Amino acid sequence: MKIVRAKDYYDMSRKAANIISAQIIMKPDCVLGLATGSTPIGTYEQLVEWYKKGDLDFSSVTTINLDEYRGVTKEDPHSYYYFMREKLFSQVNIDLSRTYIPDGMDDDAQHACRFYEEIISRCGGIDLQLLGLGHNGHIGFNEPGTAFEARTHLVNLTEATRKANQRFFADDENVPRQAYTMGIKSIMQAKKIVVVVSGKDKAEALCAAVQGEITPNVQASVLQLHNDVTIVADQEACSLLEV
């Protein structure tokens, strides 16, 4: 596991984007696993900037997103489909038919999860997976206690996770209670993993993930077992890490 210490959020975003852009340049038809949430936004903005300068070409790239709220349509501004379209897909030359996000409107959970795993397999697996880090150490929507062996599955979101996402919704009642997410086993099969972490409020979670015991109670701790993980974190997020 490699830890890249960044000065601030902007520096973190640029350093993470550097790793992703290198992957695209080295393998133009690569498969990128993408994350949503506030932390990766700066990374996507940097990638868009480099694309507009002519430094990146997304035309052969395939993307597979981590998760999606259940019961939320693609047109809903709260959906991760909408998020990805606004933050990245509509601003680069990516082929939308090669972008995959779980179908939040599929009421058959078994079908939705099995179908998504088939997509990952059909694409040949993920070359580089981008992750954020939850306050409780979760990655994707894999809540504490979820088995490491889980593949794509339906999650009942904890109140802590729903509260963390409440700022994106009008009120608490509108925050979805379930989501489809790639499981830890699916994430760990990515060839390379990049985690972006920003802010003092993530310092405890990062410390537990990097220097604590490997336990399902801190889902990100399993990343210690992967052979190619780079964590890009700003100074505040790194404040509790041993030198």
Rank of each mutant, 00 (worst) to 15 (best):
K7M: 01
D8S: 04
D11V: 00
R14W: 03
A16C: 08
I19E: 09
I20S: 04
S21H: 04
I24A: 01
I25D: 07
D29M: 05
A35I: 03
T36C: 01
G37E: 01
S38G: 01
I41P: 00
E45S: 12
Q46W: 01
Q46C: 05
E49C: 02
Y51G: 06
D55E: 15
L66N: 07
E75Y: 11
Y80N: 04
Y82M: 07
R85Y: 10
E86Q: 13
F89M: 03
I94D: 03
R98H: 09
R98N: 08
Y100I: 11
P102K: 09
A109D: 13
A109Q: 10
R114M: 14
R114G: 15
R114I: 12
R114Q: 15
Y116S: 11
E118K: 15
E118A: 14
I120K: 13
S121G: 05
R122F: 10
R122S: 15
C123I: 10
C123N: 15
Q129C: 05
L133V: 00
H138Q: 11
H138L: 04
N142G: 01
P144C: 05
F148A: 06
E149Q: 12
E149W: 01
R151W: 06
R151M: 10
T152L: 08
L157E: 11
T158K: 11
A164R: 07
D172H: 10
P176T: 04
P176K: 10
R177I: 07
R177G: 11
T181G: 00
T181W: 01
K191I: 05
K191G: 03
V195W: 03
V197A: 06
V197R: 10
G199T: 06
D201I: 01
A203D: 05
C207H: 15
A208N: 15
Q211D: 15
Q211H: 14
I214R: 13
T215I: 09
P216Q: 09
L225R: 13
N227C: 05
T230E: 10
T230K: 12
V232E: 08
D234G: 06
A237H: 09
C238E: 11
C238T: 13
C238R: 14
S239L: 02
L241Q: 08
E242K: 14
